[in-house]
């Protein structure tokens, strides 16, 4: 008994240490967002009084609202499309797997192995000749279908019991119905995890949007943060406030979804 207690205590100690290390930068960001630039560069660790001023000048200098809306728009549309298309594929690859499909899967994996810098120019040419620059389509299309998500769904479909499929077929469900009514509800934890990750990647995507977006009205939050670091003077208080605003949505999404992927209803599988 004492042994497990000690082990438990050790576990808490480890987790608390790891958490403190992980949270520290966020704490620093929050603190910095309330301080004047000069105090931030002087390394203050205490809350300041400049939060409102920073807030005002950030909103005055930059189109925060529209950047937020844009980022949400791109990230949500992208996440939804990506989850559907990739989970369909991942399911297809695993449940109906045969030599041919395994082969296709390996080939698809190759698509993520070339650094984006190399494919960016041809992609840009493609969107520019289709007159699609500066559009939502151009921002999200290249990353809707990713080998990574497909593989993630394929790997988790491996634990999806085939008995369920057989039973459902006997009950007269067709294949697409099985996917929607059986697979999706059972795999909720995978979907929640995939949603978090995809949202985060979409939200933080920077290199591609910055070349494809041409007008101030369509910029994203990471681009807005980049705007603040250019120029001869950087206002670190304002910058950190922007960075904070840019980080929060992912954190909130994670916080809301974590229960779904970490404490999935065991039992639904049965």
């Amino acid at each position: 008994m004492t042994k497990t207690k000690r082990a438990n205590a050790l576990m808490y100690v480890v987790l608390i240490i790891v958490s403190v290390i992980s949270v520290f930068p966020l704490y620093w960001m929050v603190i910095s967002a309330t301080n004047k630039s000069v105090d931030v560069s002087r390394g203050t660790m205490l809350p300041g009084t400049a939060f409102l001023d920073n807030f005002k000048s950030l909103f005055q200098l930059q189109p925060v609202q529209s950047a937020m809306i844009n980022s949400f728009k791109y990230a949500i549309i992208l996440t939804v499309c990506a989850l559907v298309i990739c989970s369909l594929a991942g399911y297809g690859f695993e449940i109906y797997h045969d030599k041919g499909k395994d082969m296709v899967m390996s080939i698809l994996l190759l698509a993520m192995m070339v650094p984006f810098v190399a494919t960016m120019i041809p992609l840009f040419r493609m969107f520019s000749s289709a007159k699609l620059l500066d559009s939502t389509i151009a921002v999200i299309f290249p990353t809707i279908s990713t080998p990574f998500l497909i593989m993630m769904f394929r790997q988790s479909a491996r634990s999806f019991p085939h008995d369920i499929i057989e039973a459902a077929r006997i009950d007269g469900l067709n294949e697409i119905q099985i996917f929607f009514r059986m697979f999706i509800p059972t795999m909720r934890s995978t979907y929640a995890a995939a949603m978090t990750i995809t949202f985060m990647n979409a939200w933080n995507n920077y290199l591609w949007p910055k070349v494809i977006i041409q007008s101030d009205a369509n910029i994203t939050m990471p681009m807005l943060v980049a705007n603040l670091t250019e120029g001869y003077v950087t206002d670190y208080g304002v910058l950190m406030l922007a960075v904070l605003l840019c980080s929060l949505p992912t954190v909130i999404i994670f916080f809301l979804l974590q229960k779904s992927f970490a404490e999935g209803i065991t039992g639904a599988v049965k």
Binding site: I85, A89, K101, T143, S145
Partner: peptide, 17 residues
């Protein structure tokens, strides 16, 4: 059916990557 499931994703990767 299996092929149908993976066609949209595969096509998009083919065009975009």
């Amino acid at each position: 059916t299996g092929w149908a499931f993976l066609t949209p994703a595969t096509l998009m990767i083919a065009v975009m990557s």
